[in-house]
Each structure stands twice: as C-alpha cells, then as structure tokens.
Design a binder for these strands. Structure first.
Length: 503
RNA sequence: GGCGCCAUCGUCUAGUCUGGUUUAGGACGCUGCCCUCUCAAGGCAGAGAUCACGGGUUCAAAUCCCGUUGGCGCUACCA
C-alpha cells in the first residue's frame, strides 16, 4: 500500500510555527518512505477563512522548501496570481467538495447511522445550561434521533433548517494504536451525537477530514496532538462508512515560553516574520525538526537530505515542546557561517536593497559591485552574523565613500579617540601607510606591527584607534583585512577626518 | 465538571519498551579561562536535574506497577 500523507491547514491566518512543524513532519515522513505529500485546504469555516491566508500558507511551505505532489499550486500569469489545482483527487479546497460530504451524509442517514436534527441553537444552549446546573456532562441528548414523520414535517413547516448528526454508539470502546503514543482508548458513551453537517450544508471538521482522508487515500494521518480527542469520533465515522482507517500519529504541540499554547503573546508565531527577520529556511527546518524529534545521539545539525534519511515517527517525543528563540538564533548563525560568500550575499541582497545601500546605476554596475565589493564586505563579517537583517548595519560603514560625524559612535569618540597619544599614533600610522605601494593585508599588518614595536606600544593601543578612525566603531572584522578592503585612499581620508574633527 | 494526553538540567532532548554498562549523556543559554587588534568564531573548564510527588515490586528502578499532583487538549452548527 502506498504512503500518502497530507497537511491540512485551515486558512484563517498566516502559516503558524506549529502548522509548519506539522507540515514538516508529514513531508519528511513522505520523503523518507517515498510517499506522496498532499496539501489540502480546510476552509469550511466561512467566516474566518481568507484567500490571503491560503497564499500565505503556500508561500510559507515553499519558503521552507517543502514541495507537495497534490494540492493547490500558485502560478504567476501576467503578474496575476493564479491558483491551480494539481492531483487526481482535486479539488483540494473543502468548500469545493460540499457535494461529496452531502452524499456520504445522506448515505449514513439512509443506513440509519445518522439523522437530521432540528434543534435550534437556543434549545441546545438551554440543554447545556441545564446539564451544567445538574452537574451532568453537557452532552446532546439525542432527542431528534427518532423523530416521527409528523414532528419532522412540523419542523420543516416552521422553516427550520436541520443539521445532520451522527448516531454515536452508546456502548463499547473505541481504541487505536497511535504511532507515537501507542494504544489510546475512549469510552463511546462519553461521546455525544456530534454534528456532521451544519444547517448551511457545509461539513464539520470531524466529518470532512474523514471523507477527504478516505477519498484522497491517505495512509497516515500525522497531526498535532490537540486532535487526539477527536480521533475516536473519526474512527466511529470510518467504521460506520465501512472504510479502512489510516494510521494515526499525534505529534506533540509547540508551546510558548510560559508553557501555554503558542500565541501572539509569546512573540511572533508566523513563519513570514522569521523570513523577514533574516532566518534561513534551512535553519528553520532544522530547528523545527528538533522540536519533538531527536536522534539517539542527540545530533543537532542536519541538512535536509540527512533529515529525510533519518526522520521517523517512532522517535518523536510525546511531550509538548517550548519554542526557544535563543536556540533558533544560534542555529541560524551556524547555517550562515557555513554558507559560501556568494550564496550568503544572494540571500542578504534583499535586506541590503531595503536599506538603500546598493551602489551602481546600471544592472551591470550593480552586478559588478555585488561581486567585487558587497560579497567581500559581507564575508568580512560572516562569522558574527546571526540574522540576515543585521547585515546592512554591520557593513554600512564599509560601503560608504565618506564617514560623517554621525557615523562615529558617541561614546567611542570619548573612550578611544580622546585619549592622550592617540593623535600621534594616528598621524604616525598615516605617514607609514601612505608610503605603502602594495595595500595588501600582509603588508599593512607588517607595517603597523613594526610601528607598534618600534615605538614600544602594545599592539592594541595602536590597532584600536585605527579601527575606530576608519570605521567609527569598536567592533569589526580583523583590522588589516578591513584596511585592505577599504583601500588606501579611504583609509587615509578617514584617518585625516578623525584627526581633524575629533582630536 | 467529565474524558484523554503528557511529565528527565531554565529550554530542546538522549537514556525508559528489553531494570544493573549512568558519579543521568548531548545541545542552546549562562559563568570562567585560553586564543586574540575589537566583536565574533573556536578550544577548555564549570554551575545547572532529589529523573513531578508518594507508595510498592526487586539484590538493584529515571527505567516495571499503583496512586496523587500539575500542565495541556477535547467536551461548538471552530478547525
């Protein structure tokens, strides 16, 4: 039997971290087993579902590099976004499948396994209120289970629109073997006759999933463990319809720092936010994979291929995981450090553009500049970059032609420059640097070091003022690489500027 | 309230099924030292877990059994 899994978000907002992690586990499982990964949109909540959310979900999955074999895909046609459905079980939007749910609901009614219920919302509310007063569980009492023709006709004449309820067996136990949790069982008499079809004709989650998972030949249902309590209802439906059940795997949820369900209160939860901050999709995938899954040796860094190879549901944790931004940040730094300079530059470019740091008038000029200047500047700072977003600030002084007063950090002027002897050091070094024909890292280092030695100064005493004079900051790349990168002209200009204005 | 799921350093987790090899291992974060022109990175060291609690079983329990507590979830014409 072929492996088919699905990610089935409801498009009520951006792609959530928890959703992304669930999608990832499904995708990895499919990849590992050579199976099919399907995207299905559960948009039966008409009020909260939006097209933008569908787009955000699709974009998020694409950003992370998870490709799906069946489901809606986005294509751009003459600058217009077009959603095209791909796969043998289309459509993949539940609102386009209403006929199907109605058909199976009808079948269950005919088989005497479901019935129409004409109770009004107010009546149900009343029922629940009474139940809670009498300290009984708020369970629908099944009063419409065996409506006789006359009563039913009366309701219809009143204009009531019925819902369809499932006739939940009131005896026995429903159990299933969960791949991550083992055996889970529920007493049937605790379940009530839940609604399958709303009076509007659209299905309720528990019914729609079953119909779609069956129709789409889903072999493994991998989802958050908030669905564990829904599973018996779904199993009862599979049995009533005479369908083969899929295997279930309930993976632990992702929680916020205080241990409660991850929400805006805990900071950003949308994948898009992390993209905009300059996290790399590879780092995100790696981090998310480790939330609820680990190998025996607790390996931390996995590339995608390795993940596809090693992932297994059996090794998933059972307990919920708290999202830890610190660790994600560390991991992002790890991935940034591993990148080739030109790759990193490509990723950084949108952030550079956003800060208006791009130089060059024609495309060709820009290309040259990126290749000759930008890439070099970024790689000087590569080892300390944690977020792509931080790059513009880190290298801004390297890209500017001239530094101005505000480019020099205030406290730095006081602490480093306005120290006795600094003026002498800077002008001495200037005199030596000006004579250098070859402004290479090695030559500069040799020259500056020998100055320090000859004038009997500690290297730091000499290096530090130069760094500040040339960058306006106390932190930065190795000094000689930096000087060489800037070039003789800029270095001399900046030293002169510093001497003239701050000393 | 009822039912279900879960419970190892602050956090992610390994170890639990198949009890002894564990003075409970790794990673993030934290502290210190080394390297060093700064910041990082790297190296080394350290603090940090009465394995939620209480009972049992056993020569031996983080590991098996029972109970308790806590967290989360479901209990909607939300998904």
């Amino acid at each position: 039997m072929s492996i088919r899994v699905r990610f089935a978000p409801s498009p009520t907002g951006y792609l959530h971290l928890g959703g992304a992690r669930t999608a990832l586990f499904n995708w990895l499982f499919a990849k590992r087993k050579g199976g099919t990964f399907i995207l299905r949109i559960e948009d039966t909540d008409k009020v909260r579902s939006t097209d933008e959310a569908v787009l955000a979900i699709i974009r998020g999955l694409e950003w992370l590099g998870m490709n799906w074999d069946e489901g809606p895909k986005i294509t751009i046609d003459q600058h217009k976004v077009v959603i095209e459905e791909v796969g043998k079980h289309k459509p993949y939007f539940q609102m386009k499948r209403l006929e199907l749910y109605r058909k199976y609901a009808e079948k269950l009614i005919e088989d005497g396994k479901a019935y129409r219920c004409y109770c009004l919302p107010e009546e149900l509310e009343e029922m629940r209120k009474k139940a809670s007063q009498e300290k009984r569980p708020p369970k629908y009492d099944g009063r419409c289970r065996s409506l006789i023709g006359g009563d039913e006709n009366r309701y219809i004449d009143e204009g009531r629109k019925p819902v369809v309820r499932f006739k939940t067996p009131q005896e026995g136990v429903t159990e299933f073997e969960d791949i991550v949790r083992g055996k889970v069982s529920f007493q049937n008499n605790l379940l009530d006759d839940f609604v399958m079809l709303k009076s509007s004709g659209s299905p309720i989650y528990n019914f729609a999933v079953v119909v779609d998972d069956h129709e789409m030949e889903i072999s493994h249902v991998i989802r958050g463990d908030d669905h564990i309590s829904n599973t018996p209802r779904q199993i009862l439906l599979y049995e009533a319809l005479g369908w083969k059940k899929p295997q279930f795997a309930h993976v632990p949820m992702i929680l916020g720092s205080d241990g409660s369900r991850l929400s805006k209160r805990h900071g950003a939860t949308s994948l898009e936010y992390y993209e905009n901050e300059g996290y790399l999709p590879e780092a995100m995938v790696n981090y998310l994979a480790l939330l609820g899954w680990a190998t025996e040796d607790s390996q931390q860094i996995f590339d995608i291929e390795e993940l596809k190879e090693k992932f297994s549901l059996e090794r998933c944790a059972k307990s919920a995981a708290i999202f830890d931004l610190q660790k994600l940040l560390w991991m992002n730094g790890e991935y940034i450090r591993k990148m080739k300079p030109d790759e990193l530059t490509t990723e950084a470019l949108p952030f550079i553009i956003k800060e208006n740091l791009v130089q060059g008038d024609t495309d060709e000029e820009v290309r040259q500049w990126v290749e000759n200047v930008l890439t070099e500047a970024i790689s000087l700072e590569q080892e300390k970059i944690k977020l792509l977003k931080d790059i513009p600030y880190l290298i801004s002084y390297m890209l500017k032609e001239d530094l101005e007063n505000e480019d020099y950090e205030e406290e730095v002027k006081e602490k480093v420059l306005k120290v006795s002897g600094v003026k002498q050091i800077l002008s001495d070094c200037r005199d030596r640097l000006v004579k250098l024909e070859d402004f290479s890292e090695e030559k500069i280092e040799k020259e500056v070091r020998s100055y320090a030695k000859e004038s009997d100064k500690k290297t730091g005493k000499v290096f530090h003022p130069i760094r500040v004079a040339v960058s306006g900051r106390t932190r930065g790349p190795g000094l000689f690489a930096l000087l060489s990168f800037l070039g003789k002209e800029k270095v001399l200009k900046r030293i002169d500027y510093t001497i003239k204005n701050f000393l």
